[in-house]
Each structure stands twice: as structure tokens, then as C-alpha cells.
């Protein structure tokens, strides 16, 4: 793997790391398997692309995308808590609805953003080459998001959210309306995913309705890889682990794609298989470690 490819993998790791933090919030904190993310990632990208192409600032685009993601997550959570639809099914319903909605927003299956301003445009004046500037910038963004998430989970409301995922009986008996907590929690999760989608669209210069396929799997892979490699003793450590997991995942994929054996080479269409293999490896490695230790 070249240095250029490595920096690219880091950049992807940080960008998708924001998404992985969102998946961590639902999957681990709220114990809410949420497939909405496959729709809210392109939702963030669509909203961002349309806002930028209509001449508004990329920062405004990012904000609107994040808000749209929150609404998508809240929709899933309302289907689940108020209309009593199973969480998994509720999230699938929102996900497929978002496919249509995203095409409506973009007035087509994709929007090109080549040459359009991004959040990197102002920073390019520093003179740093783009392949260095871009991972650096997204490192700052991703770690800031992580810091805010860690702070949030230590607030009174954040602690109530942790308790909602852990023991709903207990926290209801302590006066918390768990429906509201779940709506806000799943909303925040998808806000992060949409924010990630918007940044990805700005970074790759296009938004596409199909860019969200497999988001949940990549998110889970990052969460599980991170927890397995770094451990998860505290909230702060776990959040850092998720971000690290996202980096490891992207680097592993970059390595796999540069793999060649004679005439045989892995192609991007093998990504899903590689992901599944990585997740299985991460899930079983604690067990294998214990077997070997005996």
C-alpha cells in the first residue's frame, strides 16, 4: 500500500468514523438495531449536495444535512415507540422511504459536486497538499464530534439515555419518559450519520442515492473491531475505540484491495465479503484468544 493510499484510508476512516459513532449510539447505548442509517447517510449527502449546488455555503449544507438526519432517526423512533412497530422493521420502513425521498430531494439519482465549494475550500489557502490537508481536517472534525458525544453521555440526560438502553424498568421507575429518550437518541444517531454522509459527498464530489448501501454493516464492523482491539471499559474509551475501529476497517479494506496473487486480485465488489469476514474475525477473536490461552 502506498502512502497515498494509506492517507486516503485514514481520510475515509475519519469520515465514516462519524457514522460509526452514530451506529454505536443506537446499537450499543440504546440497544436499538437501526437500519435507518442506510438511508440517512445518502439523505445527508443529498441535502448537502442540493444546498451547495443552489449556491449556499458548505457549512450551512452540513447543518441542514445533520438536521435532516435527526428527523429521519426521530421518524424511525416514533414508529417504534408511539406506533409500537418492531424497531428493526420501523427502521427498514424509514430506510426504504428515504430511497424515494432522496431521489425527490436531488431530483434524480445523483448530483455532481465537482468544483463546488466544500469545507476544505477555505483551508486550501494554507498551502498544504490536499492529500495531507484532507485527512488532517477530518481527523479534527471526527475527534471533535467524538468529544461532544463523550461529554453528552456524561450529562444527566446522557446518563438517562445509557440507563434506557440498559434497564428500561429502572429508569421508568425513576421518572424518565423512555419514549422521548429513544426518539432523541435515534435522532442524534442519524444526525451523526447524515453529517458523515454530507462530508463524504463534499469529499468525493458527488451524492448518490445508492451510496448508503451497506452503511449499517460498515458501522457495526467498526464498532465491533474497535471494541475487540481497544476494549470498552468506559464510555470515553469505547467512543475512541469506535473511531479507531473505523480507521482499522478502512485500512484493512485498502490492504485487501491492493492484494494480488498472480492473476487474482480483489475488486471493490468483493467489499461486502471482506467486511463480513472482518466482522466474523472480530466477533470470534476473544473466544479464539481464550482457547489459545488454555
Amino acid at each position: 500500500m502506498t502512502l497515498y493510499a494509506f492517507l486516503g484510508a485514514l481520510e475515509q476512516g475519519f469520515l465514516y468514523g462519524i457514522m460509526a459513532l452514530g451506529v454505536y449510539l443506537t446499537f450499543r447505548i440504546l440497544d436499538f438495531p437501526d437500519l435507518t442509517v442506510d438511508g440517512s447517510l445518502p439523505l445527508g449527502a443529498s441535502v448537502c449536495a442540493v444546498t451547495v449546488t443552489s449556491g449556499h455555503s458548505p457549512y450551512l449544507a452540513l447543518t441542514l444535512a445533520t438536521l435532516a438526519g435527526f428527523l429521519a432517526g426521530a421518524a424511525t423512533a416514533i414508529l417504534n415507540t408511539k406506533l409500537k412497530i418492531l424497531h428493526l422493521l420501523a427502521s427498514i420502513l424509514t430506510m426504504i422511504s428515504l430511497y424515494s425521498i432522496n431521489i425527490r430531494i436531488m431530483d434524480g439519482p445523483n448530483v455532481a459536486l465537482l468544483g463546488a465549494p466544500s469545507i476544505l475550500t477555505d483551508l486550501e489557502k494554507t498551502g498544504l497538499p490536499l492529500h495531507v490537508l484532507s485527512p488532517l481536517c477530518f481527523f479534527v472534525v471526527a475527534t471533535s464530534v467524538m468529544a461532544v458525544l463523550i461529554w453528552f453521555l456524561h450529562t444527566e440526560f446522557g446518563q438517562a439515555m445509557l440507563a434506557t438502553g440498559d434497564n428500561r424498568h429502572m429508569i421508568t421507575a425513576l421518572g424518565v419518559n423512555t419514549d422521548n429518550v429513544i426518539i432523541i437518541g435515534v435522532g442524534l444517531s442519524n444526525a451523526l450519520v447524515a453529517c458523515s454522509g454530507a462530508l463524504i459527498a463534499q469529499n468525493q464530489g458527488a451524492a448518490d442515492v445508492n451510496m448508503g448501501v451497506g452503511t449499517i454493516v460498515a458501522g457495526l464492523a467498526s464498532v465491533i473491531l474497535g471494541e475487540t482491539i481497544c476494549g470498552a471499559p468506559t464510555i470515553a474509551r469505547t467512543c475512541a475505540a469506535v473511531l479507531a475501529g473505523s480507521l482499522v476497517y478502512r485500512i484493512a479494506i485498502a490492504l485487501a484491495l491492493s492484494f494480488k496473487l498472480g492473476d487474482f486480485a480483489l475488486t471493490p465488489s468483493d467489499l461486502n465479503l471482506i467486511t463480513a469476514f472482518l466482522v466474523i474475525l472480530a466477533l470470534t477473536s476473544p473466544m479464539l484468544k481464550r482457547r489459545l490461552a488454555r
Binding site: 450529562t155 444527566e156 440526560f157 446518563q159 429508569i171 421518572g175
Partner: peptide, 20 residues
């Protein structure tokens, strides 16, 4: 401590102040 802090807020609004 976290459990006690959750109980200390029984029936009160929970905001963005420090949990514990």
C-alpha cells in the same frame, strides 16, 4: 455513583448538567 445520581433526579427534569 451513576445509579445513585440517576435516583437523585427521580421525577425531576434531566438536562445537560454533569450526570454525577
Amino acid at each position: 455513583a451513576q445509579n445513585m445520581a440517576l435516583a437523585l433526579k427521580r421525577g425531576k427534569p434531566r438536562g445537560l448538567g454533569r450526570g454525577v
